[in-house]
Design a protein around this nucleic acid. Structure first.
Lengths: 336, 336
DNA sequence: TTGAAAGCGCTAACAG
DNA sequence: CTGTTAGCGCTTTCAA
């Protein structure tokens, strides 16, 4: 039954050894005579002994648990990231305490402290805007912290990202090369530097370099939801001079744009080309299928966690700022 | 900076009291003179003291952490459930250790033991098939376990579900009432009792009661993926006598069915009506929008977690098997 | 190769 | 209202 009350001490007695020896076999210490090891293993088996990780954590100051602060696990984007994190964590024998922050700064800082209180061995942090206060907290942390899919103004903090500006630049350039001169942008909230700083700048730079001017009517700021994509389409279609292509900051909003346009009788991509961002599974679940910038979410999570293990083991880390490659996956929402 | 080394003992000295008193104020024990409390609070502030939850856990035998075993957090369905769980957990001041099981029995049992080793105060379990071995483990657990969106053959194990058979029955009946006589089924893997037992039986019973016979050609077993929905459509459309309606076990597969049909020139719902299951956000992200059975994932998670808190607090629980209501959300993939 | 003993940082009686 | 004192179950020197 409830075997949670049997301790290392009980095993020691049952096996006729000291608890130190039991500890050794439990921890795979080689300095134990095979015969002794067997006795102990048998006792463990008989008693149904299960080591108490909390006690172990207190004594060893390691919990083999890492904290994960994520904006919203229900988001298809972050869920994929989380899976990458968890898989690698499991591989290295860590468990994960998962916390949703809703990108709320107070919550984020509070969660950070809760996790540190729980003595996690490290933290993977995903968020929107990283303020100085965030950075201070990160630096004050007694355990390593790695940011995933989150840009940080301070480059001493380890991060794993793709090159957002470049990625958007590439997408816009592609549209330009295909003859588009009226290219709209549906962005996520500009307060998030990934949108306001990186993606937007990529858009602007690509237009400039192509000799195209930035038309404010062609910029719509959404809130990441499908519905805001729908709205963006409505807005663009109400324009005198409609855009011939639109780049959308996330796939979910891109689906909204596509459907909004189709609901108004447009043909995608003939009447309007659409490019999304992220390459979530959604991209294959629309008609036409969505051309999109591939952001390897799972890999970002996996690499961030791997990086964290290095810090936790005091391994040498050559580069604390890792940039993963991106590319554009052509599908049917763009011509040709 | 790194304040993780300062302990309750340091605070006690700084405040000129005993550690017991510090413990009292940290834990909100009212038996402390206000003046003393203030001294302690100041000392805590000055030193930047942060209680060590691991030590606390060892001493109190409570970790305020619950384990969550989930098939795949990257699934839109489970991610929503997880969010419900986490929100309520946070509300009751618990953190969550999240583990992906991929519905693999060995992994599930192993994770269970890992979590128990970490001394979680309770566990929310989501899975597919629950075997006797599972039930044994659940019953052997020293802490309460609640199953969410997971049917269990043994009804002593607390569960939170909707009435799957009834839900499917309702959907099929609706199709019948609208004049359909050739109703196909796209199911998830039949090994999962939710599919093989409950949903399938709902389908069969509705047909029987409507005087319709079950046609094997009209049953396709998918694997929950969009692509398997696509395949199902291909298969149905290759039939001599094509179905006029199809009920699909999950929304994602339903999108596949819709697109598969459209890719073959069919008009949904005119040529074929489609009903999905779950009412994930996907249901609104297709054209036509998807009529679907509403399974309140978030609520299931939330209620399961709430139930777990009751067990953890030894509160009276009237009903360990809770059934949440379902309904059908009519959209455009069905006629009228 | 094994054991003894001192903590890890905190809670929880029990006194006072 | 406050302090003393045992542990909680395990790891980790240090000796043997």
């Amino acid at each position: 039954m409830n075997n949670s009350n049997i301790t290392i001490y009980d095993v020691a007695r049952e096996a006729g050894v000291s608890m130190a020896t039991v500890s050794r076999v439990v921890n795979g210490n080689p300095n134990v005579k095979p015969a002794t090891r067997k006795k102990v293993l048998d006792a463990i088996e008989n008693l149904g002994y299960r080591p108490n990780a909390v006690a172990r954590g207190l004594a060893s100051k390691k919990t083999t648990t890492v904290g994960v602060i994520i904006p919203d696990i229900a988001s298809i984007f972050f869920a994929e990231l989380a899976r990458g994190i968890e898989d690698i964590a499991t591989m290295y024998n860590y468990n994960i305490i998962l916390c949703n922050s809703d990108q709320n700064k107070e919550k984020e800082i509070h969660l950070l402290n809760t996790l540190l209180g729980k003595q996690v061995d490290g933290i993977v942090f995903m968020g929107g805007t990283i303020t100085e206060e965030h950075v201070d907290e990160f630096k004050r942390s007694p355990v390593p912290i790695v940011l995933a899919a989150t840009v940080c103004p301070d480059d001493e903090i380890p991060t794993v990202n793709i090159h957002y500006q470049e990625a958007v630049y590439d997408a816009i350039k592609l549209l330009v090369e295909r003859g588009n001169e009226k290219i709209a942008l549906v962005s996520g909230p500009l307060e998030d530097p990934i949108n306001g700083e990186y993606k937007f700048k990529g858009y602007r730079r690509a237009l400039e370099e192509s000799g195209l001017s930035l038309n404010e009517d062609y910029v719509h700021v959404g809130d990441y939801t499908y519905d805001s994509g729908l709205e963006a389409a409505e807005k663009f279609l109400s324009l005198e001079d409609k855009p011939s292509a639109v780049f959308v900051g996330t796939d979910e909003m891109a689906l909204g744009v596509i459907h909004g346009a189709q609901d108004n009788g447009l043909n995608i991509p003939k009447d309007m080309e659409v490019i999304g961002f992220d390459n979530t599974r959604l991209a294959a679940m629309v008609r036409p299928t969505l051309t999109t910038v591939v952001q390897p979410m799972y890999d970002i999570g996996a690499v961030a966690m791997r990086l964290l293990t290095k810090f936790m083991n005091n391994e040498k880390v050559e580069d604390r700022t890792v940039i993963l490659p991106h590319r554009i996956q052509l599908r049917d929402s763009t011509l040709e």
